[in-house]
Amino acid sequence: MEKQRIYRYTWGFLFLFAGVAAGLILNVCMGSVRIPVEEVWRILTGKGGEMVSARILLDIRMPRTIAAILLGGALALAGYLLQTFFHNPIAGPFVLGISSGAKMAVALVMVVLMGHSVRVTSADMILSAFLGALLSMGFVLLVSRRMAGMSQLVISGVMIGYICSAITELIVTFAEDSDIVNLHNWAQGSFSGITWEQTELIAAVILVTFLITFSLSKPLGAYQLGESYAQNMGVNIRALRIWLVLLSSILSACIVSFAGPISFVGIATPHLVKRLFGSSRPLLMIPACFLGGSVFCLFCDLLARNLFAPTELNISTVTAIFGAPVVLWVMAKQRKDRGL
């Protein structure tokens, strides 16, 4: 039995790594300008290649693809942390309104600072999004204490999201025309326009957050078995909850700052990964969810860019098409398990 589990885990990780590798290759090669794999290799190794292809590959596609890997993984990991925190299978940054809170804060900073000709840095964007995500998370926590049912918590999160979105629209009303264009494009969700400088910052923030999250694997495993059990195992429940709030907010903030709000990845991916591995152990789920989110976003971004080229779809449009059925399946499964 133990050998079968190890075999399944090994093949699960190999499948996810192969998916990331395939998604990376397809994303850098395919687009309005096709670049053969051989030419990609020559450009990356400095052995030649056309100048136009090199600029497209190095300045546009590579940073965008790496950002999709990092941000997709972060989004799935944030969803897993929130589902663990609330013991709720359909909790996620988008559903609970946390992404909307981060979006509201970023829109406010962009409009106010840009309106006064103040340069907005990537660090400013992350910090403002983090504060907005924490604000929304605070409201969700307050509501969760009074809401016993899963459906009530989800409805409350959706309402918080609507409130934040309404405030964002109000902010946009008083923005300059040039700022409105930037806000509109960003608010739709896209990995387009991400630079190497931004990718380096994304990588630094997400790497540190991932390592801290992975170090919490053991207390998270105990927490999944119940708070009483975790306390008996010596887990500081209050400290663990604070860490879960902070880590999920940082991940959500990083995603919204650079790619805008992206729906359903954080909810759907953890369930698909659990199905693949047949386990919910944090030691497996944390890296597996990250890889699964990367694969999900790589292939959704590939479709968004190429399906109706040269017109590019919003990434949230594609993720919703594939992610929403998973959410419906989870809800139906929960109803069946309860015998309703």
Rank of each mutant, 00 (worst) to 15 (best):
E2V: 08
I6N: 06
Y9M: 09
F13N: 00
F13W: 07
L16I: 08
A22R: 06
I25M: 15
C29A: 09
C29G: 04
V33D: 06
V33I: 15
T45E: 04
T45G: 11
G46Y: 06
K47A: 12
V52S: 12
S53E: 15
A54I: 04
A54H: 13
D59L: 12
I60P: 00
R64F: 08
A67Q: 00
I69P: 12
L70S: 07
L71T: 01
L71A: 07
L75A: 09
L82Y: 02
F85P: 05
H87N: 14
I90Q: 03
G97H: 03
S99C: 05
G101P: 09
G101K: 08
V106D: 05
V106F: 09
V109N: 01
V109C: 11
M110S: 13
L113R: 11
G115H: 05
G115V: 02
T121L: 10
S122R: 05
A123V: 14
D124Y: 07
M125H: 07
M125V: 09
I126H: 05
F130C: 00
F130T: 01
L131R: 02
L131M: 13
L131W: 05
L131S: 11
G132Q: 02
L134S: 10
M137K: 02
V140W: 10
V140D: 02
M147L: 15
M147Q: 14
G149L: 12
Q152N: 13
Q152C: 01
G161A: 02
G161I: 13
S165E: 10
T168N: 10
L170Y: 05
I171W: 02
V172A: 04
V172C: 07
T173A: 14
T173Y: 15
F174K: 09
F174T: 13
A175W: 06
E176V: 03
V181G: 08
W186V: 06
S190L: 04
S192L: 12
G193M: 07
T199C: 12
L201E: 10
A204L: 13
A204I: 15
I206E: 12
L207M: 10
T209A: 12
I212T: 11
I212P: 09
L216W: 02
L216V: 11
K218C: 08
P219N: 04
A222M: 11
Y223A: 09
Q224P: 05
S228R: 15
Y229S: 11
Q231A: 14
N232T: 10
N232C: 14
N236G: 13
N236D: 15
A239K: 15
R241T: 08
L246F: 11
S248T: 14
S248G: 04
C254R: 00
F258K: 14
F258C: 12
F258M: 13
I267E: 10
T269K: 10
P270S: 04
H271M: 04
H271C: 01
L272N: 01
L272W: 05
K274F: 06
L276N: 02
F277H: 11
C289T: 09
F290L: 03
S294G: 06
F296I: 03
F296G: 01
L298H: 07
L298F: 07
F299K: 00
D301W: 08
A304P: 04
F308M: 08
P310R: 00
P310H: 03
L313G: 04
T319C: 03
A320R: 02
F322Q: 04
V326K: 00
V327K: 01
L328H: 08
Q334K: 12
K336N: 13
R338M: 08
